[in-house]
Every structure is written in structure tokens, then in C-alpha cells.
């Protein structure tokens, strides 16, 4: 630990705030690209908490989990952007509120 008076609870608060900002973006925005970016923000908040707990407890497993989350996030971003490009090619929009054709 570099800073002695830095507690794990500060990292919990910081990553909770980041996660809530990402959730607010997912609920508020309509542009599909910005939605994907907000999901990346939420994943990074979880990564930060994993790393903080891993360092404070002296266990490397948390950092391995962060590694795997990064792998899944990279695959998710590639597939999500490919879907987005296909949707844009067909509808000329990236607004998710127009994609309601499955509505019963």
C-alpha cells in the first residue's frame, strides 16, 4: 500500500459513483454508441473495485478476474459495434428508441 490512510471504503465509494454514472447514461441516452460506452464505464467501475479488493487482501485472483473482464469487454465491444454498423446500414439511425419492431 502506498498511502496508509487510504481505506478500502474510499475505493468502494468511488467505484459505486462511477457505476451509477454509467447506469444513468444507459437509462438517459438514446444513441447506441454512447450506450455501449456507458456499459464500458460500468465494467471499469467493477474492475477498479476488483483491483482495490485484490490489493488490500493480498490475493491475485481479483486481478485475474479483471483480466478476464477486459477480454469479455473487448469481445463485447467488437460484436456490439458490428451489430450497430449493421443496424445503421439498414435503418440510417443509431437511435435505440426507433428499434421497437419486436414490440408486441
Amino acid at each position: 500500500m502506498i498511502f496508509q490512510n487510504l481505506d478500502i471504503s474510499h475505493y468502494i465509494y468511488l467505484s459505486t459513483v462511477l457505476f451509477s454514472i454509467g447506469l444513468f447514461g444507459v437509462l438517459f441516452r438514446r444513441n447506441a454508441i454512447v450506450l455501449l460506452m456507458c456499459i464500458e464505464l460500468m465494467l471499469n467501475a467493477v474492475n477498479l473495485l476488483f483491483t482495490a479488493l485484490s490489493t488490500y487482501m493480498g490475493d491475485a485472483d481479483g486481478q485475474i478476474f479483471v483480466f478476464f473482464i477486459m477480454v469479455v469487454a473487448a469481445a463485447e465491444a467488437a460484436v456490439g459495434l458490428a451489430i450497430l454498423v449493421m443496424v445503421y446500414r439498414n435503418t440510417r439511425k443509431t437511435d435505440v428508441s426507433f428499434l421497437d419492431q419486436l414490440k408486441g
Binding site: 500500500m1 502506498i2 498511502f3 475505493y11 468511488l14 474492475n47 477498479l48 483491483t51 482495490a52 485484490s54 490489493t55 486481478q63 479483471v66 483480466f67
Partner: peptide, 11 residues
């Protein structure tokens, strides 16, 4: 930079 502060240099 937070990761560097947390001694997680590889990450």
C-alpha cells in the same frame, strides 16, 4: 493511474 496507486502495474 488508480491501478498504479493500487500497486497493480500490469493491469
Amino acid at each position: 493511474a488508480h491501478y498504479v496507486l493500487l500497486n497493480a502495474q500490469f493491469l
